[in-house]
Design a protein around this nucleic acid. Sequence first.
RNA 1: GGCCCCGUCGUCUAGCGGCCUAGGACUCUGGCUUCUCAAGCCAGCUACGAGGGUUCGAAUCCCUUCGGGGCUACCA
Length: 485
Amino acid sequence: MPTNRPVRVRFAPSPTGELHVGNIRTALFDWAYARHTGGTFIFRIEDTDTERVTDEYIQKAIDTLKWLGMDWDEGPEVGGPNGPYLQSQRLDIYAEWAAKFLAQGDAYHCYCSAEELEAVREAQRKANVAPGYNGHCRSLTPEQVTGYVADGRKPVVRMRMPDGETIFTDLIRGEVKFDHNFVPDFVLVRADGSPLYTLAVAVDDVLMQVTHVLRGEDLLSSTPRQIRVYQAMGVKDDEYPLFAHLPFVMGQDNAKLSKRNGETSISWYREAGYLPEAICNYLALLGWSPGEDRENVTMKELAELFTVERVHSSPARFDMKKLEAINGDKIRALTPEEFFTWSLPFLVNGGVHSGGEGDVALTKAALPIIQERITKLSEIPALLNFLFVKDFAVEAESLAKISDDDSKKILGLAHDRLADLGEWSHAKIEEVLRAALIEELGLKPRIAFGAVRIAVTGSHISPPLFESMELLGKEKSLERIASVR
RNA sequence: GGCCCCGUCGUCUAGCGGCCUAGGACUCUGGCUUCUCAAGCCAGCUACGAGGGUUCGAAUCCCUUCGGGGCUACCA
């Protein structure tokens, strides 16, 4: 076990779509472990499946990691001594190793067609035996090979799985054992010469001197194959990387999280106004916990606290409600300046204002009164729109609530008293309104202020009324009250 | 079907043989506070899948069983 080597961890997604929540959780643990140990974090793109991986998704994966605050030491954009970090640019390396395996007799050419293999599997299913390659081409005679070649068959390269078993210690699950009777000979290179995941991961992990493989649980059963490649490469067994198979992130319906059972793409969360630190904090809690009833951690703290020993072996359900709660906590913890920086794009993109000097000043003044009332940044436009809107109008539903005579009376009095007010501050506004509506008219605050709130903000839900009126200004406030009195 | 992994409140988890009549967080319910909405505070609901062992003593160890999931590709 490479315990005395400096830690090198890699996150190696196959961008066949946008990185989803599960991928991100894996990346986060990889990153946190590398940072915790002072090791190296490698970002590698596994794009051997050219049918499904696209440049667009690769770029998105890069952007996503950056946005979330996970920096890498080797990989796309930053390079490194073990590059290239796109498997599609390492094809010659895989070809070399495949040739070596062939020469050593660890691997062999297999001429079986897809149909033939399917027929074998079908028969195995019927006979109720373990499915897998039957070893048909393991020891072909030169004549047989000539025959296949003459038929125009193109061979794949298949790894020979010797009898016996593979035992390894998973850092999370303990000792795991696979009998080779259930690990059939597997394909390393397609008939067209392109490498398969099984070849590429193993070769790259060895060449990039990866010491710890933290990856999804779905890859657990492919580990014996990976170890087989190490052996063929001549890696000593005490130099294999250590494996840690992370539990799944599940959707509401108990199946692996996917588009069908929840929002999985990070861009969705980004647009909805989730903070990267909230996403990472929440995801860190899925399958890991710092203990001692601790839940709130920053990225920095995560790096300090994260250990593989505290990672769970059981899968976790994704819960949007909890994410929202954490997001709200993180938003409240923002400094005014940070909160402004995060908010501005939502205001501008939401069409509330264009980000001009005056808009910015008013925004900065208004943000403090809403910071503790939101759980997502996307809620900001609706809350502050009344301050900026050009052609103000009370929403129909709310308008009905202030169309009765009692409301007219409230608004009329409020308008008159406010018109006489000299110092337009929220404290003074409240003082005047309380004197007039609560004491003089004897109304309940929620009734009296409710009417004014609708008149001024256009909605029965708004930031605190008096602060809102101060921000809106005397002229506009009176104008709005007058228009519905 | 076969192989492998997993199993504490609705959810995320603490727990690693006695501190557990099982703790925290989110959700939900009720209350307080209150100009709406939040925030904050208080209270409540609800869990060791089941059955056997081992032990003075088990959520913690062992076995069985049931349940969930993954893999079983010239996907990763």
